[in-house]
Nucleic acid binder design. Structure first.
Lengths: 235, 235
DNA sequence: ACATGTATGTCGTGG
DNA sequence: CCACGACGTACATGT
């Protein structure tokens, strides 16, 4: 990883064209050749960047040459070209304040907990919180247009398709609607009810779900985890 | 902006919990207090981060204290707490390879060109590329559920709602469908046809659009721009 | 402040 | 390799 702090201008040409006027910025060149251009604010997202796989070539001008050129007084130029899309990033460095390199090695990676996958697992294990006598058929029930999060049977043996979201918004209801349309064409399953389950459901999503005959359920992550813990203590 | 390269471990607790085991990484502290944790690959997105507004407090341990503690041999700890959500990021530094600071100032900002807004303006100005005798009614025609990109009239005076996307995918068709449902309830406008316009349209989106009776049009950005240039030269 | 739609989204997963 | 869905999505814009 190479870290450069420099006064520079940046141009990007690819899915769009963009230009950054001359100013001091942080430039990061990663081991895979990818480049990030960061300002001292507006975090997370770089002002400009190039994703791997890409190729970086650098060229220099000596001071005299730079001084002669009235247009751009840059002393070093980076040309980064994306290997597949041909997107281009050009960085022109005018004044370099820092330039250092470090060997970091490959990162062991992030361990996550508490995302949708986890919610799904918890609800699948505690499917009877939706109703007494309910049973799990499958998690990630595959259809031609994508996986249904949970397929279950209610107390009377009827099929229920459950879509789980951390946040319940309108496109989640659309997604479940598409699944229900498809599932209800299968005579072995039909009729299939829909349940839209989320930690919080927006009013618009609720209205749309009601209009489509889909039930809404709010999930309490901590409560589900609590049930799960309580159950595992029995063993 | 402070740049630190260090062997560190990171823990995040907030919308989820996440842990990064001890490894060498780049830590960036921006002027607004936000923190980014980057590895030497997998670009653009930090492994972990804290967005502003947030507060960073640092604490140190002297070497003896660190050596006595068999658990964690960290010598410096950063606690970053988000001012509004209470999300927490904790970084424990074990070995520091670099620690530098720079004053960058406020960035003049990015100039963009070629996104959806531009496509919309170009198509609005050249609405007759969709058919002879077509006319523009409004750009950003406002409805209760959001703005329709372009509302136009075809050669026979019929209403046409146009949804524009850079890339035509399934959710764009869903969006247009919702608009059409609503617009067709307005007796002054109905019947309203739909056109899904994009630089490239995915097969699935095409199929769904056909199923909904929506026409697809691919837009040639350069051609539209060319027409526009040619027209402006007439004045 | 909240809601909505876009993104050079990025990133994983499964076919 | 492509398609799809999740994301601590982030981010700008309009009310």
């Amino acid at each position: 990883m190479r870290l450069v702090v420099a006064r520079c201008s940046v141009d990007y040409t690819g899915r769009l064209t963009a230009h950054l006027p001359l100013a001091p910025r942080l430039l990061i060149v990663k081991a895979d050749g990818s480049v990030l251009v960061h300002s001292d604010g507006g975090s997370y997202k770089p002002l400009n960047w190039m994703t791997p796989p890409c190729t970086l070539t650098t060229s220099r001008r000596d001071d005299e040459e730079a001084l002669e050129d009235p247009e751009g007084e840059w002393i070093e130029q980076w040309d980064v070209v994306h290997d597949k899309t041909g997107d281009r990033l050009r960085v022109r460095l005018v004044e370099v304040f820092e330039d250092s390199s470090h060997e970091l090695g490959i990162d062991p990676g992030l361990q996550k907990d508490g995302v949708e996958a986890h919610l799904q697992a918890l609800l699948a294990e505690n499917i009877d919180t939706l109703g007494e006598g309910w049973s799990l058929v499958r998690r990630e029930f595959f259809t031609a247009i994508g996986p249904v999060d949970i397929l279950a049977r209610d107390e009377s043996g009827g099929s229920v398709a459950i879509e789980i979201k951390r946040r319940g918004e309108i496109d989640g209801v659309e997604q479940l609607t598409r699944y229900l349309e498809l599932l209800n064409r299968d005579p072995l399953l039909a009729p299939v009810r829909g349940i839209f389950a989320a930690q919080a459901i927006k009013p618009q999503a609720r209205v749309l779900a009601a209009d489509r005959g889909i039930d809404c359920v709010t999930l309490d992550y901590d409560a589900l985890r609590g049930i799960d813990d309580a159950e595992s203590r029995l063993f």
